[in-house]
Design a protein around this nucleic acid. Structure first.
Lengths: 232, 232
DNA sequence: CCAAAAGTGTTTATTCTACACCCATGG
DNA sequence: CCATGGGTGTAGAATAAACACTTTTGG
């Protein structure tokens, strides 16, 4: 079995994606589980020699989720010398049946550009890569142990997401096109990790003048039907 | 004359620094002028094969300014495929007396991690690199034309600096240890590009409880002597 | 005593918060 | 007509802005 070839990619440069989704009231991210090792990692990839960095990340995201044109934001580049772990990567490759020698490129030191993405979980069709036997959603507050510095990357992604939440008005990117105010509030609460007051939240978001009100959404429950909203 | 050798550095990876300073009421940045070409560029460099990314940038900053332990913040990684310009780099190298062939590493495509730094201009001793005949301060609103995408990098650095100004309380990093409230206000005005109200500014900054008041500063002018302040 | 600039007090405006109240819905 | 959750009105609190006033300094 031949090992993946480097010649098409820039050496020492990688990207990692923290892909956020929201379901069952929880904020979750996508993780890959590597064959036979029980190790988890962020979905990532490499940059083609004639490919733009952002394009590479978009390509990687499409390969894993099938989605295009999704909200994507670069937030930090991790470049510590000791952030890689050659022995970890070697175990992963060997568990996949590759025989690698010490100079194999995947064992090298990598600088990784990290992005976070916000997607509607209903729209994705998950697709593992060749080294992983599964890809799935894990709640942000109950993640398995991650390889390398990926936990640190997740933490920084979450910090950045919270930081951007009120400034870039991105809360709705985790929901379908139309949603109720209560849906949106639960997204905000999951991201911020705290309860918000219903009336204040409603007033604040309506005051921003970024929501368009649509028809009412009848659930069959015995109470007033909420309006559906979308972002302008 | 031999050309610089790549073997000690990671290929295709660079960093660029937008080094801000404040003097004569203006916000300025450091630029290098390349020999014989009349071209200007941000000070930058490359990452040693066994060197951390942040350490590389700190090293580069020390080489150009003599300063250590300065405020430094990574803000974006530029990775478009067409951001480099091999013909520009070739002209620069040739103007320095290097004969380079088409496959020379400095002509390759680079991904560049950009940082901004805030320094006290009084503390620096400027030092050009081997390809430049000068390094100097240029007001942010009257920059010469820059090579590659360096103007875009500067613009994004300034956006980020404005964005961080109130959140990270970094205005004072551009001033000496002790300064008057008026000094600080002029820094804020230069960064934001707008006039601020004296009394509101004073109250706001004192209200943040981050300033320590010292002795009065007598200038010999016929008015009340202002207090000196430092950051806690 | 005057002009200039620094520092502070006070009033006003604005924004946020809390709570109350009313509305719609299905059982 | 009741319970439940959704939407809005309003009063109070907190914050921010605007303006006036006082203080200090050297000529």
């Amino acid at each position: 079995m031949t090992v993946p070839d480097i010649s098409d990619y820039l050496p020492h440069i990688a990207f990692d994606s923290v892909i956020f989704g929201f379901s069952k009231g929880q904020l979750k991210i996508l993780l890959m589980e590597y064959h036979a090792t029980g190790w988890y990692a962020l979905p990532g990839g490499f940059v083609g020699v004639k490919e733009g960095l952002n394009q590479a990340v978009e390509r990687g995201l499409k390969e894993r989720t099938g989605l295009e044109n999704i909200y994507l934001e670069q937030f930090y580049t991790f470049g510590d010398f000791n952030r890689h772990g050659a022995e970890v990567m070697k175990r992963i490759l060997e568990a996949n049946g590759y025989a690698v020698n010490e100079s194999y490129w995947l064992l090298d030191r990598f600088i990784s550009v990290a992005y976070y993405a916000l997607i509607d979980v209903e729209k994705v069709t998950l697709q593992p890569d060749s080294l992983s036997d599964s890809i799935g959603w894990y709640p942000i507050d109950a993640l398995p142990q991650l390889i390398f510095d990926h936990q640190q990357i997740v933490t920084k992604a979450l910090d950045t997401l919270r930081y951007h939440l009120d400034r870039k008005l991105i809360g709705g990117k985790l929901l379908p096109e139309k949603f109720t105010m209560n849906d949106l509030q639960r997204v905000y609460e999951a991201i911020l990790g705290e309860k918000l007051r219903r009336t204040s939240f409603q007033r604040k978001l309506l005051g921003l003048d970024i929501l368009k009100r649509h028809e009412k959404h009848f659930t069959g429950k015995s109470h007033k039907a909420p309006y559906l909203y979308s972002f302008k």
